[in-house]
Write a protein that binds this DNA or RNA. Sequence first.
DNA 1: CTTAACACGTGACGC
DNA 2: TGCGTCACGTGTTAA
Lengths: 204, 204
Amino acid sequence: MIKTRPFSSMATTTRSPSHAQDHILAERKRREKLSQRFIALSSIVPGLKKMDKASVLGDAIKYVKHLQEKIKQLEEQTKKRTVESVVLVKRYHLPAADDDDDHSNSSSNDDADDDTRRRSLPEIEARASERDVMIRIHCEKQPGVLAKVLSEVESLRLSIVNSSVLPFGNSTLDITIVAQMDGEFSMKVIELVKNLRLAFLKFM
Amino acid sequence: MIKTRPFSSMATTTRSPSHAQDHILAERKRREKLSQRFIALSSIVPGLKKMDKASVLGDAIKYVKHLQEKIKQLEEQTKKRTVESVVLVKRYHLPAADDDDDHSNSSSNDDADDDTRRRSLPEIEARASERDVMIRIHCEKQPGVLAKVLSEVESLRLSIVNSSVLPFGNSTLDITIVAQMDGEFSMKVIELVKNLRLAFLKFM
DNA sequence: CTTAACACGTGACGC
DNA sequence: TGCGTCACGTGTTAA
């Protein structure tokens, strides 16, 4: 265990006198390269307090794990929903082109201040005309959501006339349903939307 | 430069014989820690071919940069995934159903003017996610309007993926179109809506 | 004075 | 044989 002094007790390897300097030079170069890498690594790892090698390595390890976890979350997030706040989003108002019956003002709506607005899903919209009801739902793509929505609609004493579901992007669906209220039963649109929204809260 | 054997030739610092072993022991511990960190780092960096320290550091650096870039892309993607949307005409605001997030005046909007409100047509709405574009048009029922709309959409360098037209009530249509922008061409949603609206002004 | 970290030269091992 | 890499012991320096 204890190192003895092999002054000339070279049982193993002898060093050529000329190449001896090559060795220490090569070793210097190696250390230099390692040092550079350490510096480079520490420069891309944010928030390092200690700059010694062990800490750099340790923090780099933590950082890599953190990044990997974050990527996992982000990739899942793009697949899934970010719900929690299921809202009936208010729609952004664009200055109407022909708002009133007078449809002569044509170029009054050049001010598109906010195109990239954040939208929370699902977005539920309904409108009624006589007995016809149109329901439009923009929601996260989930298996069985159409059936659930349709059954929910039918449970509200609405007979479905037509329905379509369009995939939009790779994570959302746009469902359009036209239904009819039967008999004397009529429902205020706001109530319909509230019920649908409540159903969505149960779904997801 | 050349290492001499300072058995007692202490030009600089003398080492207490007892603490001399402490020194080499501490150094061993330090090296051990570094080795562990290296192993740990190499274990979380995928696809390492060379296992020497310089390569581990170098690949770890590349990997961290790669992860950072990927996160940037994913975060931008999630931002882009929030659909940008433009509605042309004024739309009726549905009060958020009794909930926390929208704490506006809760049920003050129940007045009767919502359902029986006169709506100005056509109503054009578009939203985009990545290359997908969704167009919804609520307009008066007119023969040939679907064909005109579709040809107009195609003339805007959009390839139609799906389209549906639903009769709603007895005098209006609800047209939903999903299209894709081809190639590098991209169009701001507001421009798309403006063009469609302009086309409608010519149609009707 | 202790503690910790570093760079250095050096022997050893593998290709 | 050389070339590259490693771990070791050691001297040195800064907190």
